[in-house]
Each structure stands twice: as C-alpha cells, then as structure tokens.
Design a protein around this nucleic acid. Sequence first.
DNA 1: ATAGGGTTAG
Length: 596
Amino acid sequence: MAATIIPNSTHFQANNHLHNLSFTLQSCSSLSQAKQIHACILRNNLDEHFYAKLLLFCTTTAMSSTSNALDYALLVFEQLQQEPNIFMWNTMIRGYANSNYPMRAVRLYIRMRDRGMLPNNYTFTFLIKACTAMSCLVNCYSLGPAVHAQTIVFGIPDSDVHVYTSLLNISGDFDVAGKLFNYMPIKTLPTWNAMIAGYAQSSRPSEALALFYQMQLAGVRPDEITVVSILPSCAQLGALELGEWVHLYVKRNKFDNNTTVCNAIIDMYAKCGCIDKAMDVFKGMRDRTVVTWNTLISGLAIHGQAEEAIALFTKMETKGVMPDAITFVGLLNACAHAGSVDKAWTYFKDMQMVYGIQPKIEHYGCMVDVLGRTRHLNEALGLIDSMPLEPNSVVLGSLLSACRICNDSELGEKVLERLMQLEPLNPGYYVLLSNMYASSGRWEDVTRVRNLMKSRGIGKTPGCSSIEMNNTVHEFVVGDKTHPQAQEIYRKLDEISLRLESAGYVPDTSIVLFDLDEEEKAQNLSVHSEKLAVAFALLNTCTVKPIRVVKNLRVCRDCHLAIKLISKEYGREIVLRDCNRFHHFKDGVCSCKEFW
DNA sequence: ATAGGGTTAG
C-alpha cells in the first residue's frame, strides 16, 4: 500500500488526500514508511491530529519490537511545535509500557505531571501496565499504592473497570487486591480473570478455585482466559476432577483450537498424574509453540520418563522449533530424575555450543542435582566453583542432598550454614540439620538446633497430603484427627499395618528425628499424612481408578515402602505426587525405581 | 483517535 499514495507536494490539495493519508497510516508496516509520512506532514504543515496518528503508529507493539520506531516516535514527540495533548502523552506512555524499558513510561508520566498536564483513565491503564512490567524486570518494591493514590487524586471513579482491573494485577499485596476486588462496584469478565490469575500466580490455588466457583455462581461464563487462569491452580493442587471438567468445558465451547488453552491443559494433566492424557492433547494439537513442547518435556521429566522427554526434544529439533532456556531446564530435569549424568552433560554443553543459550541458575541447579544423585560430589563442587553466578538456595539445596547421599556430613554442615544465612526463616534447613545430627546420634546438637528454631519462632512445616474425591479436596496433616471420618480412617490404618506386617513389612524408622524407642518411632511414622490419605481412599473407593495423592513435602522412605506394599496387597494403583516428582505405585513397584 | 484478564522452569 503506502508509499505510492502519499501525496506529491507539488500539487497537494489537503482535502483530497487527508483520507488517503489516514488510511496509509493505519495500514503501512515499516519505519521507512513512517518516515515518509512524517516528511509529508512536515511539507504540508498538517495539524497535530496527524502527528498523533504518526506517534500511535510508531509505538504499536509490533512496530517497536522489530525496529527502533519507538525511539523515532520519541524524537517526533520531543520536537513537536506545540505542547503535546493528553492523547499524545498516553500514546508515548503506552509505547514504553509495552517496551523493554517500562521505567521510561513512568519517567514520562512524571514529566507530564511536571508540565501540568492532567492524566485521564487511559493514562492510568498504561502507567499501571508499566509498573507491572517493572516489578517483573527488577526486584523493586511495588508501586501499586502510589499509583492507586494518584487515581484517587485525579478523580478516577472506582466504577472505572479498566483502571481498577489493571490495578488488581500490579502481583504484590494480595490482601489489598482482595479488598479492592470486593470493593469494585462493577466487575466484568476480565476483572474476575485478573483476580483468579493473580491468586494462581501468587501460589494461592485454593483461593483461585474458590473465586472460580464464586464467579460461576454470579452468572459469569468463563472464557478462554479464565480457563488458562484456573488450570495452573488445578495443576498445583492436583485437582484432576475439576481439571477434567475444565477440559470438557473447553471442548464444548470449541476453545481447543487455542494453543495457550491446550498448553495449560497439557500442564494440568501432567501435574495431576495423567501423563498419557497430556500426550493425547499434545498429539491432537494443530499449532504448537515452544511452550507446548516445553510443557510436555517438563511433564515427562517429573514422571521420570527421561527417554520419552529426550525423544520429544529430538522430534522438536527435526520440526525446526527453536528450543529456549526452559526447554533445557526440562531436559536436564528429565536426566536428573533418571540419573542420566552423561546425557545431562551433553545437553548442558549443546545448550551453549549449539543453541547459544547461556546457562542460568536453574540449569546449574539441575546439573548439581544430577551430579549429586549419581554421587559425583566433587564434580558438583567444581561446577559450583566455576559458576559465574552466586549459588542460590536451589543450587546449595541440591549440593546438600548430594552430601546426604554421599554421607559427607562435614561438607553438609558447611552448606547448611550458608543456606541458613540465605533463608534464615526456612524451617526445612533446620529440620535437615537436626536430621543429620540425629542420624549420627548427636542428640545434644539436635536439642541445640531445636532450641534455635524455638528462639527464632520457626515451626516445622507439617507434612500435608491431599486427595480429591467427588469434587472436594480432602487434606490431611500428620497425625490429623479432624476429618469427619477420622475414627474409621485410623481403624483402616490399623488393618493396613497388620496386613502389611504379615506380608513382611518392617517400618523404616531411620528418618525419625527424636530420640525415641523403636515402638514410638513406628507409631510416629504410621500417622504420616500420605498414609492417612491412602487409608481414606481405600476406605471410600473400590474402583479400578488409581488413588491420587498430592504431598507438599518429599515422601518419606517408610511411606514409600509402605505404599509400594499397599499397591500390591490391595491391588490398587497409587499415584503420589510429592514436591519433587511423581511416584506411580503398582504391583509393589514404584516408577521412580528408588531414584529420588 | 488510546484501555482491562492468559500457558512452560530445580
């Protein structure tokens, strides 16, 4: 289109050509065309309306991401003869809000205020977008309250859904967001979506689910974005029944040609233990993005299916899909869960040499993990020394696991000290340290660590397992007696113990921390949350469907042994997701092959 | 003339 219909200056008649010019600005797609238009505006002395259009064109996301059109727009903006109007300011703020330099949008806003220009509701939606982008880029404290205050100062009513919906997502203080949400007199579909997504992104999946139900009670129909916002919460909780319902809803409403929706479903199935269904959805997709491949590769990894993850990566390569940093996190994780240390090294090197991707802290985390699991403690140490990054708690945590596997308590203590400096309030490290002392009978040190925890007000994170039944999630903490069926559950536990013992089960008491006698230790183990959850399931179901349990911590050695035997004795398949990976128990065998 | 909500990661 474009260049040919730009008016010739020698016989220009404004009225005849204004229409064409507007049209050109809407449809042309390159910076050079924009420059020609700029020249035309200058030659013909066109009014600010045309400058505004020019700025708008140069600052659209597609343009500014592929060229330096944004800089060009700023140049035009700075050289305007008259004071820019609010539309022009908004356009520039929007441009930078969507760019890699969102801070510049905030600076523009401050400049605008210095010049006495009054912001409007559009200004705030762009400004809020910039603030959100900033808090993603740098670890700055949230600008939310300040921006909210500004909207009040400049008279934006709380009935303005656009401004208030974007305010919800400015992902720091969720109590404030919840209050804002309740307070909003008008809620539209995006308002509900923003709040549900916000809960999901701040790891509050139960609240996301509650809001999802509340939304439907309010008569608001979920759309594609709602579905994508709720599925990660199903995934996190392992809420398969709800996830399946959402999948049906997606099919009924023909949302399944939306790649993002399908990606979220793949992730949900993988994290709810149904890796086969995840693969089915993957196969049925027409358009796949790198996210699609990544999601399934990571899914296979947590199921310990390293061979399949690698095969998928090979297929991805042949299809010409460019892997990214996340692809390799998934692949390395797959190698780690299978103990394939050689393959891990190969991908760690290929990632850099073949694909030019610099390893991030996550990649080092995976490498230390796989080196530790395969007892290459010195190599793990060497890799950490060679890292150009400061090791974080993830890397050190993997190193600590390596120390435990290799029984190097001297190094383990040193690593723990560093971890406790990095995260002084994380109870997990105190428990590990105490565990380490207990296993070598150093009870005085155990007491010292326990007192340290007490004085710092740190409590041990209780083991918690959840199981979904008839659309309700039942949660059990260790020693839980609050469930309505508690009595029956404990009777069932007794029955299970007897049956397992006659099948040769001896409780593995090696991980119990306290200086107790063997009988007390066994008692302590028998009420672990995952055992309660499994007993509850055996009590209430008799179908061939697998029992699915999600645990917040790592499954303990004794529970792992007991559940293997239960799967055989009771002829039930049990799928247990712990905080690390999946364990599929069937006929007395676990899919992890004792590798976890 | 300009707006709000979305997926993968030890």
